[in-house]
Design a protein around this nucleic acid. Structure first.
Lengths: 109, 109
DNA sequence: TTATTCAATCGTAAAATTACGATTAAAGGA
DNA sequence: TCCTTTAATCGTAATTTTACGATTGAATAA
């Protein structure tokens, strides 16, 4: 869609922002927490847990899936969603480094 | 604005999402990195550094200020922006805990 | 086969976000 | 005083996000 290369931001800056956006909505924070805490991760259970319309939850799940934080596997007529630990770790590393900037920063003002 | 208490999400979930949204845009990621790296933190320098219109940068700075991640002090006709280390640390702690969920999570699927 | 269940997708509306130029206000300098 | 500089705010447009109900499609159950 965006053909012309945008030089304004680095790949890293863009990726950090994309990860942040992924849990930049309380529903997606809650979904991710639920997937970590719960043994069950069926889509219908998530809908019950969060309290938003089924189509809305599907939309949020799609966003989390698009960035790779979760993955879904069809189980009969249900779909089981899980954290993708590889992406989760990558996110932890990237954002962890971003957060720790303060440790090597000099004072200002 | 929102009078009726919204029970759908916890304060923590909402706060995590708000912090995430704060750096959920590459311009704000870059601004924060610049404030950490640079000795200078004058608004005009940020505008030059990022390459967006002055009014757009002001808007992004306002968002970062609203959530408390940065603070500005007037210096003559300029404004000097700085990281608010207290809020930054609070954010690190909160999101760090959120990220480390995987350490106590059981496998699924 | 037909009916049911479950989740994705569609269509749509409302709200929020992002970006810009123009204007304003405050401070400093001539 | 008047002019310049700096950054906030205003007004606005385009885009994205969020949410919902309705529909669809796939799989299972009767």
């Amino acid at each position: 869609m965006e053909i012309i290369k945008e030089n304004r931001f680095t790949e890293e800056q863009t990726q950090i922002a994309l990860f942040a956006k992924a849990f930049g909505h309380p529903a997606r924070v809650k979904i991710l927490q639920y997937l970590f805490e719960s043994k069950s991760c069926v889509c219908g259970d998530i809908v019950d847990e969060i309290g938003l319309a089924q189509s809305t939850i599907s939309q949020h799940l799609k966003e989390l899936k698009n960035i790779g934080l979760i993955q879904g596997s069809v189980e009969g007529t249900s779909v089981c969603y899980c954290i993708n630990n590889e992406t989760w770790t990558k996110m932890k590393d990237m954002l962890g480094e971003f957060f720790d900037q303060d440790l090597i920063s000099s004072d200002c003002c």
